[in-house]
Amino acid sequence: MSANLLSIADLGAEGIEELLRLTDSFVEVSERPIPKVPALRGRTVASLFYEESTRTRLSFEAAAKRLSADTMSFSVATASVAKGESLRDTVVTIEAMGVDAVVVRHASAGVPWQVARWVGASVVNAGDGCHEHPTQGLLDCYTLRQRLGSLRDRRIAIVGDVRHSRVARSDVLAYTALGAHVTLVAPPTLLPPSLEGWPVEVSHDLDGVLRKVDAVEVLRLQHERQIEALVPSLREYTATYGLTRDRARLLADDAVIMHPGPMNRGVEIAAEVADQSRSVVTRQVANGVAVRMAVLFLLLGSGSIR
């Protein structure tokens, strides 16, 4: 593993496996009465969030704290960005304060790559525009493995706004690296213009796909205004691509239902479906902390986690 985590593609199957194994240990740590280890004592992790995201930021900060790292938090609303400071100046300034890792979230694809060129600290991509969200990809793999065991030859459907989804891009790379068969299900307007090089199948028939899969991942409809231009209406979207109660009955009893959150209940997923025992939405969040502990530990740690 390099000193950065920018893309799932950098990890390969072996890197993913290593992180998932490490996550097991941190899940165990999280279940202790005092869920904390001294592994990153004296290290500093800065979170640099140029886009609102409560859950990912809290998850990274919880992960850093459980590893005993110091944390610094930088959010757009209160920051020098509002005073016109450039991205480069901001990250160089933060690095000058002595940080070992920078966790970056930005609405523009590629910003973590730019940041990595400017700083020597480790850079973790916490979501860049419509590109990638590698720790989400890892925690989705981890969560699925808890339910399904190995992902090899498992069939997974990813449903919804793949075009704008960084989760989908990371998940496709991660699931297929672990040997799963992925089917993207969406209207053509919500798929990327080209799927050249993507090891996936595509379907526009959600009912048919649901009957055959081991897991279905429902994507959030992210940009409601954009979506309105890409599908005739949210109502029609829900009718054709929403995981409604009726449609969820087509799934096998032991199929897994996932959603990266936050959910638009009643739009891409029915409230009752999200709350079914087959749904692992809350489990995804819990695993997120352990996965991010594994990532930070692997990037910054040198010793044993015990």
Binding site: C130, H131, S194
Partner: peptide, 15 residues
């Protein structure tokens, strides 16, 4: 350019 790279990189393309 809209194509394989724009789709992979998550950057909106111009056809």
């Amino acid at each position: 350019h809209e194509g394989a790279w724009s789709s992979r990189l998550g950057i909106p393309g111009t056809p």
